[in-house]
């Protein structure tokens, strides 16, 4: 059916039907592309939930709806005492790292943005350039550092590389650019010291950025796998992703249990995201890079 059949009275359509049809075609293609993208995004989550409801013998069956759905996997994971420990580890590490990032990234971002000192640009570029180094390259130096500090298999060892990030510093610096200098100078005249100005004047004005950074950092640490895997040895120190990867034995991977653990561990991130999503969108739009 063409558009003409649907809206035969629209004068614009009557005046120039081919143009209109072309435009609708473009719109349709756009929707199709977005729909395909949406499906691609949602599929892994759907498949994760689907697998978590399957019996082990059905795991390699591609069907989305299990033949015999079961909650047995959930019971198994929740009854396995180790999962709570991993959940706690992940929560503690992600929370502490987030708080640390909010504090230090914004402090450094503010300093780089609002103070004029020799070498300021150089420091900023040096910080930014660390964004170019992949984590895989840093794991060995981090490991050696942890070893010499005696931090292997400890919370401190898991957390220290992410306590402050170049990305967070950059994000906060960009946001502080939007805080007018007049505000800072007015506070200076009113007798506040520089730390008080940062805390009482500048920080409340960049709350959206702080919320966005909080989500970025929390999600990043919640799902971090490589470094926690490398730095931890004992099962008690595992985080959720590391712990989940250990389900199964040497011969077989228990995908249904991994997917169950993953599904459960998604809940906190989902809650955090739903609460702060409007902030994260603004944060991404304003930062303009890296998700």
């Amino acid at each position: 059916m063409t558009v003409l059949d649907i809206h035969p009275t629209t004068s614009a359509v009557l005046a120039d039907p081919p143009v209109r049809r072309q435009r609708n075609m473009g719109q349709f293609l756009r929707w199709l592309l977005l729909f395909a993208g949406g499906i691609a995004m949602v599929m892994p989550i759907v498949y994760m939930i689907s697998t978590s409801l399957k019996w082990p013998h059905e795991v390699y069956n591609i069907n989305l709806v299990p033949d015999e759905p079961t909650l047995e996997n959930y019971l198994y994971v929740l009854e396995d005492g180790r999962f709570y420990g991993w959940f706690w580890n992940s929560l503690l590490i992600a929370t502490l790292t987030t708080v640390s990032n909010l504090f230090f990234d914004s402090l450094v971002g503010y300093t780089l943005c609002k103070f004029r000192f020799p070498g300021r640009q150089l420091v900023f570029i040096a910080i930014l350039s660390t964004l170019m180094i992949p984590t895989e390259m840093l794991v060995i130096p981090w490991y050696l550092m942890s070893q010499s500090f005696g931090w292997l298999d400890s919370y401190w060892g898991i957390m220290f590389p992410g306590m402050m990030t170049a990305f967070g510093t950059f994000l906060m610096k960009q946001f502080f650019e939007s805080v007018p200098d007049d505000f800072i100078e007015a506070a200076r005249i009113d007798g506040l010291n520089e730390f008080q100005i940062w805390w009482t004047v500048a920080m409340p004005l960049v709350k959206p950025a702080l919320a966005a950074l909080a989500i970025f950092v929390f999600l990043g640490n919640w799902t971090a796998f490589l470094w926690p895997l490398v730095v931890t040895n004992s099962v008690e120190m595992y985080t959720i992703p590391v712990g989940l990867s250990g389900f199964g034995d040497e011969v077989d991977v228990a995908w249904e249990l991994i997917m169950t653990g993953a599904a459960i561990s998604t809940i906190p991130t989902l809650v955090v995201f739903l609460i702060f999503q409007r902030f994260i969108i603004r944060g991404v739009v304003m930062a303009g890079l890296k998700g």
Binding site: P180, D182, F183, E185, A186, I189, V201, L205
Partner: peptide, 9 residues
């Protein structure tokens, strides 16, 4: 001091 852009928080 009173600023051009008011500088009220």
């Amino acid at each position: 001091m009173v600023f051009q852009n008011y500088a009220i928080y």
